[in-house]
């Protein structure tokens, strides 16, 4: 079985700052993979480079065995993307956005209409389908973004913080759809820093810290008997016990001194 995603020494610098310092990410096909790491670890930059939205300064990436920068047609037909933030065509309605997306990829209009209708239905967006995206809430935007990413039936789905700012009901809808998607043998890769969610959903975890992959493998292996949260803190060095000395004033009230 080939890997859905494999990168070799991906590097990205912004001026003197190194955002991604040689990342070798591996995600087996058919897995529900979580890319976790503290803020600024380089998760978004890595995902942008794999999805050809950002040119790497070094290294290369492969999706389903196709080179991202040398074979863009094959790669772009296979991937679905939901980037960070909520960047969508704001002045289209949800339905128009899906139609635009599908037709841009050359899918016949009748098929796009049918798929869009079903996706809107599953995402519980039928009532808002003809409202402009600019008036959507965060959860609705994430859902319509996911619908747009799924529309052309990709084999690998990249989601950057798909659950950030999403209410529990919408989050449940999103996970249901994603579970169905991976059950059919497709791959999902999503970045997050909500460990509980990753632990619940994923069977494969890659941990990033300061531009490097510090651990990678099946969930049980990375976890090693601990909770994922503890394993994560151990890996990225976030245990705070020796930092408490400088905060003696915190919580102290003036009236206590009297």
């Amino acid at each position: 079985m080939t890997d859905a995603v494999r990168t070799h020494g991906l590097v990205k610098r912004y001026g003197s700052q190194v955002a991604v310092a040689g990342v070798d990410l591996v995600v087996p096909a058919g897995s529900f993979a979580g890319l976790v790491g503290p803020n600024g670890a380089g998760k978004t930059t890595t995902l942008s480079m794999i999805t050809a939205l950002l040119r790497p300064d070094g290294g290369h990436a492969e999706v389903d065995g196709f080179h991202v920068w040398r074979d863009p047609v094959a790669v772009k037909a296979r991937i679905g993307v939901l980037p960070e933030g909520l960047r969508l065509f704001e002045r289209l309605s949800g339905r128009e956005l899906l139609l635009y997306n599908g037709m841009l990829r050359g899918i016949p209009k009748a098929d796009v209409e049918q798929r869009a209708g079903e996706l809107l239905d599953v995402m519980d967006l039928t009532g808002a389908a003809d409202k402009l995206v600019v008036d959507y809430s965060t959860g609705m935007r994430k859902k319509i973004g996911l619908a747009a990413a799924l529309l052309h039936n990709p084999s690998v789905l990249f989601l950057d913080e798909p659950f950030e700012g999403v209410d529990p009901v919408s989050a449940n809808t999103l996970t249901e759809v994603l579970r169905r998607f991976t059950a059919s043998g497709s791959t999902v890769i999503f970045s997050s820093h909500v460990m509980d969610l990753v632990e619940r959903l994923c069977d494969w975890v890659s941990v990033m810290s300061a531009g490097h992959i510090v651990a990678q493998g099946p969930l049980a292996e990375v976890r090693g008997g601990r909770s994922l949260n503890q394993a994560f803190l151990d890996l990225v060095g976030g245990t705070p016990h020796d930092r408490e000395a400088g905060l003696s004033w915190l919580g102290a009230r003036p009236e206590d001194a009297r």
């Binding site: 999805t51 050809a52 939205l53 863009p72 094959a74 772009k76 991937i79 960047r87 997306n101």
Partner: peptide, 12 residues
């Protein structure tokens, strides 16, 4: 910022 949607679809 929404141009990415075209960018991920355009292969040539």
């Amino acid at each position: 910022r929404s141009l990415w949607m075209n960018a991920v679809a355009f292969g040539s």
